[in-house]
Amino acid sequence: MNLGSEFTRYILFVPLVTLIIIGCYGLINSKNIFNALFSLDVIDTATISLFVLIAASSGMQTPITGLERYSNYADPYPQAIILTAIVIGFATQALLSAIALRLSRNNPLLRFRDMED
């Protein structure tokens, strides 16, 4: 598949933007902690995919030099950087889950309504 054409790129952006909107909708409308946690993960995934898609706009092949059969490389810079963001997203999820576990001792339903006063 050729990602170079403008039209294909716009088509591929649509599901990612939809995913971001779904995540934001879920986060704003969530009534308990777990829903909020999952929605944040959805936005996280969408952002990471956005980075990967933009990195692939120049080509989709693995950026390894010395092999002449490859002509159009993907940009390695955003891909390398998004690795950090993936790890950070995972760490955020882990910390939030830990806090949810601790909060569930006194509020087993984990509803926001019970904890906000």
């Binding site: 986060l27 996280d44 956005l50 955020t92 939030l96 806090i99 601790r102 909060l103």
Partner: peptide
């Protein structure tokens, strides 16, 4: 304080995702 820290982390995490976009 645990709930406040949860709010801080989820708000901060969302803000940083907006920043990344």
């Amino acid at each position: 304080s645990l709930f406040q820290s949860f709010q801080y982390l989820i708000g901060g995490g969302l803000a940083m995702l907006i920043y990344l976009i």
